[in-house]
Design a protein around this nucleic acid. Structure first.
Lengths: 297, 297
DNA sequence: TACTAATTTCAGAAAAATTGAAGGTAATAG
DNA sequence: CTATTACCTTCAATTTTTCTGAAATTAGTA
């Protein structure tokens, strides 16, 4: 069986014009090179050089040089791709994330992650927790960032951090004048605008408020507009409201259990691609620093 | 260094879905296959299968399968081409030949030669001896068929056969009524039409006739037309005149030395391509039979 | 014609691949 | 849930392949 290694030796000899230099180039003795060449000629079925001074090729030798060069180049390129992929230097990474993480946490992490991997392609989907889990489960996303859920089915949840829920009201609301942090009873007269994130709150008092609520808004921008206009108050994780728009006030809530947990969502059954694995590890390593910078405890 | 052989093993395992079957397929034991795979994973830098039951690939494994398959296919194809070329099953053959050989000898030979080499491309140049030598010398033709010449320069002459020169005259000529074979003196009253082939005749008597000649024609068809019209007689090798046109009579000449030698013309310095070599040998082997069929002694 | 440099040959040495047996490990059936 | 089975890995010994260094041969050159 003809080996690519033999072609490498042949090509080196053909390019050197003699065995001695080629032997040096491939780090072998001249006799080893000579034997390899002989064997190659036998296996191909014809002479590769005009004479045994290897300075001019036969027609067969010329063909072999051309084809051999192609094969070697192509093989080495493929191996390079395989290695780059294995070492997560190339490939693609599909991330699904809830908006708060996508907007505040991921940018600095991705920036650092990609700075040493300029060839990696990233897709970032900015969707709600349910969709995040769905995308990861379907394999559309390699990894997801979402709120905690009953660990069901094919996806696994790994907690990363939690942040407190805070109250948002219009700047002119009477709630602003109350002593912070607010208690549930402080809110008893307010209209609650429900949103996707706050609906995960388990507290009975919240549920009572939500029961009375007439408006539900999933889009944060719209939510802000309504709050600002004084149609009601809403409750959001602090990460979502890092920079509240003008006219909207963020107020702490007393209830200590009022936190949401955010974590990684990954498929349990299939092994992650090298990049997804590298990214996962990168996130776990870099997240504390990023959270510090954002002042989220 | 990653070997193509390792990729072959990997691809076989990936396609079999387990080591045992793959081991049978490649004619090795399971342990050999397992070790090859392990080594490959180390060299690439990541796992290729999800578990050690080799039934599902990792993302890296999938990439390797794709690229590996490509590489193997491409390599084997290249080796196939190299072998086919070495065994003269593919490639191209450029032949230069004098018209008499090209028209009478080469067709049956080429037909048989190519019948077992359907992929071989042939170019046939139908030119005079001087041009044949020139083309071979320039490398434009791999091999040539031409009359003998002082073996000069880079080309070598190998005699193949010789044929007698014969006289051609119009059917109505008084030469037809003379006793065959004709002597030089029989021609003393005739006008000679010179041609490229007869000018190689060394006999003094011919030279005397040629001296007096007023017409020289290089194209056989035109030559025939002039002879038929009675403008003169001409002398041609018998092979050129296998089927003389109506109205032209072929008459033997007495002079026993009146032969031309035809042979192979090849470059001395460079080695022939596998096809040229095979064709040369084929010609040497098949020519006697062909000459017999043509009744040329 | 002899000399020099390169190549080939050959036998032994080193390296790599393969085997067979033993020991694990995951799927399957009872 | 445990036993069974089939498959996979590991390990040391063995076989095969490749490599080396010296000697012989060959081609090119003085």
């Amino acid at each position: 069986m003809i080996k690519l290694e033999a072609l490498r030796v042949f090509v080196t000899v053909a390019e050197s014009g003699n065995i001695k230099d080629a032997a040096d180039a491939v780090g072998r003795t001249a006799s080893a090179v000579s034997m390899t060449l002989k064997q190659l000629e036998e296996e191909i079925g014809g002479p590769l050089f005009q004479t045994d001074r290897k300075n001019s090729l036969t027609a067969l030798g010329n063909l072999m040089l051309q084809l051999g060069l192609q094969q070697i180049k192509s093989f080495d390129k493929s191996v390079g791709i395989m290695r780059a992929f294995a070492h997560s230097r190339v490939g693609s990474l599909s991330i699904a994330s809830v908006p708060s993480v996508a907007a505040n946490v991921l940018p600095p992490i991705l920036q650092r992650f990609l700075s040493t991997r300029p060839q990696v392609e990233v897709e970032l989907f900015d969707i709600d927790s349910v969709q995040v889990r769905r995308m990861v489960e379907a394999g559309t996303a390699d990894i997801g960032f979402a709120g905690e859920s009953r660990t069901g089915g094919a996806v696994e949840f790994t907690p990363l951090f939690s942040d407190r829920f805070k109250l948002l009201c219009s700047a002119g609301s009477e709630l602003c004048s109350l002593k912070s942090p607010l208690t549930w009873s402080d809110l008893s007269q307010s209209n609650l605008i429900r949103n996707g994130a706050s609906d995960r709150i388990e507290a009975e008092e919240y549920k009572a408020l939500a029961e009375r609520s007439l408006i539900t808004v999933y889009n944060v921008t719209s939510l802000m507009a309504l709050v600002k206009a004084g149609l009601g108050v809403t409750i959001l994780p602090s990460l979502t409201m890092l920079g509240p728009p003008e006219g909207v006030t963020v107020i702490d809530l007393l209830d200590a259990k009022l936190r949401r947990s955010v974590g990684l969502v990954e498929r349990r059954d299939i092994s992650p691609s090298p990049i997804a694995k590298a990214f996962r590890e990168f996130v776990l390593r870099e997240l504390p620093g990023v959270m510090d910078e954002l002042s989220i405890a």
